[in-house]
Simulated assay, not measured.
Amino acid sequence: MRTVALDDFDSRMGPADRNVPLTDALGAANAALNYYELDEGDSFAYGVHAHQSQEEFFYVVEGTVTFETLDVQQSADADGDAASTDETEVSAGELARFGPGEFQRGVNRGSDRVRALAIGAPQDAGDTEILRECGECGETTTQAIELADDRSEIRTICESCGSVTGRFD
């Protein structure tokens, strides 16, 4: 058996106020585990995303998370939109599950702090596709993640035009 205390870990850089990776600390071999704290406007992820081969579970310990979901399987409508979006609130004591290939992003849209656990299985997520709005392209595009040369921030980069679409420290 292994035990750990959250207060013993530093947060890693990203879109959440606090993100503590616990997988290695607990010696997990078949699942990934992360602890999050989100201030108002913070998110679990860099954009709406889907993991090719991993399902994700979120347990909300405190607060309310709004999950944005995207159905990219839906055929284009008359306006040319290729996907439909939906939002679902998940509150303290509730859980959400996303299967492999399901696009989602959890955001704290309230003023109360969110505390949550995220579990992914299997541990290897496979390819992850991230989508964000690109101001230069004028549409939602696939994104790459890169660490700044001086290691001061993580950036999301539009894969179509190379523009920086987000900065996270």
Rank of each mutant, 00 (worst) to 15 (best):
D39A: 13
A83W: 08
L70P: 00
S53A: 13
A50M: 13
G41A: 05
F67P: 03
L26D: 04
R12N: 06
H51C: 07
D39T: 05
R18S: 10
G80V: 07
Y35P: 02
G63I: 03
L26W: 02
Q54L: 04
V4M: 01
S75F: 08
A31M: 10
E56F: 04
T69W: 00
Q74Y: 02
E62I: 09
A25D: 01
V48P: 05
D8E: 14
D24L: 10
H49V: 02
R18E: 12
L70Q: 06
S84V: 12
V72S: 05
H51F: 09
D81R: 12
L6F: 03
D81P: 04
T69L: 10
F58Y: 13
T23Y: 00
V4C: 00
Q73C: 12
S84L: 15
D39G: 09
L70H: 05
S43H: 11
E55N: 06
A50N: 09
A32H: 09
E62K: 10
S43L: 07
G27M: 02
R18I: 12
N30W: 06
F57Y: 12
F9M: 06
A32I: 00
G27S: 03
N30A: 13
D79A: 15
L22E: 00
G14F: 00
G41E: 01
G47Y: 01
D81T: 09
E40T: 07
L70V: 08
T64P: 06
E40L: 10
A82F: 07
V60R: 08
E37I: 09
A32C: 08
A82G: 15
E37N: 03
Y46W: 08
N30L: 05
S43M: 11
D71H: 03
A5L: 15
S53F: 13
S84R: 15
E55F: 05
G41C: 00
H51S: 13
M13L: 00
D7W: 10
